[in-house]
Design a protein around this nucleic acid. Structure first.
Length: 650
DNA sequence: GAGCACTGC
């Protein structure tokens, strides 16, 4: 391991720009907010900008009787910060200070400081595009460039142009994108705030390694032997790597007994798909005489803060999903992290005391990394975004003021899909009632269409279950050594009609189980109880939406044909026909796909299928598949399939 | 015949 030649890059930055503690910056901040329409605040972790600044603004009366909205990309952060601020101000949560996130609204008409997810503020804007109840909008964690924050950037620019001087915007960022933000909101004032982060020594490998997994293992053992007390957090790319390392480390660490002065290693995994009880183990105090090793995905970068960590091991890779508009497919690939991500990971060693970060690549490799990963808007399907922009009154979405324009092909693809779904009229306006209904639903438009068709085809109860199950995390727990048991347990739910009906069967069985027995019931069947709970929450929320949209709630009982037609009416872009070599040709795009091995239809050969998405890994896989009749195609999407039929595409 | 990082409405 080599230390960085010039100490820490972060220190270099701090020298370049004087950073003020927020308490000292207070007066200055207040007069700057008065003088400028937009302020960009750059502050590190612990600068107090998220908790203290909104209080200053409120007490100084700068909201002028209206409210202050503070957005966060994550629900837990919005809730936690709101709680802290309410406590600091000595007020009841939900009164003067409140929060609003999906499934949980603790705000009222009296709320003057409202913490919310960025997606919630977009939802409010869809109803009131000028956000008239707010005088100040604070977009926190703006450097993360989430899709909703991206919409809010452009929207705020438009609102500010309309409400002359009457709408203040404060953009908060942890990184130096400040120049970019300031440029986008012309004339914005930039301020740097001091954080409360301990120094982290960053170390690099002198030479690149062949296997980062082995390097991670060796580095963990080396830290254990050489370094002082403190837990180790290692960043890997996924469940499989974590499980592999979990098996390898305990075997070797036994040989170390007595060698290191910090006892045995306690290896704890953490990733999103892990069952809640298992996840809880990372937060338990490390037993005396032991050193904890946390093997994590990027969940530990931002979403979860593990106490006690002094050492970070960064393998330098991340599993990233990206969308290819031309192929209409997602791919999931292991790619190098960005510089910003590497810094974020290293920073996790300095939350409680000075720490060390071991980057398992060379310094030259670090310098060659991208500054930041591409913003979400560059790598996802934009159907939902386009629909929302239309509702916000943006007639020409290509002319919307994006901070970074999305790929034109992706925007055109989205418009095409919305036209095919019938969400847009021929002139590109939101259609009535379909388009207007789809914007209201918290779903991708294709799945919203499945739900609305369910209403029209008298199977909305079943459509609700199917859509809810596809909107949650995977419900079938997969662990290598339990694979056979898993298949056995799945049998009772499996439908020959495919994955959607199988998921419907799972949810139908689940709701029949008594509430206090659901945890055990899921455990026995290797179902992820957290995913099941979330599916039910989503289902009841969507059900409320259907009620307010006056969509009839009906069940098709045992006749599943209408349900499959409803599914097809939303997902017809992903309808495919069997080829002689057992692959499938997607009718709309001509893409060749195979049924994903996790599908209940894998190995069977239905003639015609429809599926949720294409995932490109070793090859193109269709995920969540249902058997359909080819004759249904022109019925559910006449304008789309008559065109293809006449050109010989079928 | 082979595998799913992470958010959010």
């Amino acid at each position: 391991m080599q230390a960085m030649a010039d100490g820490s890059e972060r220190n270099g930055l701090q020298k370049a720009q004087e950073r003020l503690p927020i308490a000292e910056a207070r007066k200055q901040l207040m007069s700057l907010v008065k003088a400028h329409q937009t302020l960009v605040l750059v502050g590190e972790t612990g600068s107090g900008k998220s908790t203290q600044l909104p209080q200053f603004l409120h007490r100084a009366g700068l909201a002028e009787g209206r409210s202050i909205a503070v957005t966060q990309p994550r629900r837990v952060a919005a809730i936690a910060i709101a709680r802290r601020v309410a406590q600091e101000m000595g007020v009841q949560l939900g009164a003067e200070v409140g929060y609003a996130v999906r499934f949980d609204d603790r705000s009222s008409a009296a709320t003057r400081i409202k913490y919310m997810t960025d997606g919630m503020l977009v939802r409010e804007a869809l109803i009131d595009p000028s956000l008239s109840r707010y005088k100040i909008v604070v977009l926190d964690e703006a450097h993360e460039r989430t899709l909703p924050t991206e919409i809010l950037f452009g929207l705020m620019k438009q609102i500010q142009a309309q409400r002359k001087g009457g709408m203040k915007l404060i953009v908060m960022s942890a990184t130096l994108d400040a120049a970019k933000f300031a440029h986008f909101f012309d004339g914005a004032k930039v301020i740097f705030l001091q954080g409360r982060q301990f120094p982290v020594d960053t170390l690099y490998l002198p030479e690149p390694v062949d296997s980062y997994l082995d390097a991670v293992r060796r580095t963990i053992l080396q830290i254990h032997v050489d370094e002082a007390q403190g837990d180790i957090l290692a960043f890997l790319t996924g469940q499989e790597e974590i499980e592999t390392l979990q098996r390898l480390i305990p075997e070797r660490s036994l040989q170390l007994e007595g060698a290191g002065s910090h006892g045995k290693l306690l290896v704890v995994p953490i990733y999103a798909a892990l069952q809640p009880e298992q996840q809880a183990k990372v937060f338990e105090a490390t037993p005396a005489g032991m050193r904890k090793v946390i093997l994590a995905t990027n969940i530990a970068e931002t979403s979860i803060t593990v106490p006690g960590v002094r050492y970070v091991v960064d393998a330098g890779f991340v599993k990233a999903r990206s969308y290819n508009a031309r192929l209409q497919s997602d791919s999931l690939q292991v790619v190098p992290v960005s510089k910003a991500q590497a810094r974020q990971r290293s920073g996790r060693a300095g939350r409680e005391a000075a720490g060390k970060a071991f980057r398992l690549y060379t310094e030259a490799a670090f310098l060659g990394l991208e500054a930041a990963s591409a913003p979400e808007i560059q790598r996802v399907s934009l159907a939902s975004l386009v629909l929302q922009l239309k509702q916000l009154g943006v007639a020409d979405v290509l002319a919307f003021p994006f901070m970074d324009a999305p790929p034109k092909a992706a925007l055109l693809r989205a418009l095409e899909l919305l036209l095919a779904l019938g969400a847009l009229d021929a002139d590109g306006a939101l259609s009535q009632p379909l388009g207007a209904q789809l914007v209201r639903l918290p779903l991708e438009p294709a799945f919203g269409k499945v739900l609305l068709s369910g209403g029209a085809m008298s199977c909305s109860e079943e459509a609700l279950s199917v859509v809810s199950m596809t909107s949650t995390d995977p419900v079938f727990v997969s662990t290598r050594n339990k694979e056979e048991a898993l298949t056995e347990m799945r049998k009772q739910f499996i439908s020959p009609l495919g994955d959607h009906i199988t998921l419907l069967n799972v949810l139908t069985s689940y709701v029949k189980v008594k509430k206090n027995e659901r945890g055990r019931w899921c455990g026995e069947r290797l179902l992820n109880v957290r995913s099941m709970r979330k599916a039910l929450e989503i289902r009841s929320q969507l059900r409320e939406h259907l009620l307010s949209l006056k969509v009839p709630l009906k069940s098709c009982e045992n006749d599943l044909d209408p349900l499959r037609r409803a599914i097809l009416s939303g997902l017809f872009m992903h309808a495919a026909i069997l080829l002689p070599n057992n692959t499938y040709k997607v009718i709309a795009s001509g893409q060749i796909v195979s049924i994903h091995p996790s599908s209940v239809l894998s190995g069977r050969k239905p003639r015609c299928i429809v599926f949720d998405e294409i995932l490109r890994t070793t090859r193109n896989y269709a995920r969540n598949v249902t058997v359909i009749e080819p004759s249904w195609l022109p019925e559910v999407a006449p304008s789309f399939f008559s065109k293809i039929e006449s050109s010989g595409g079928l």
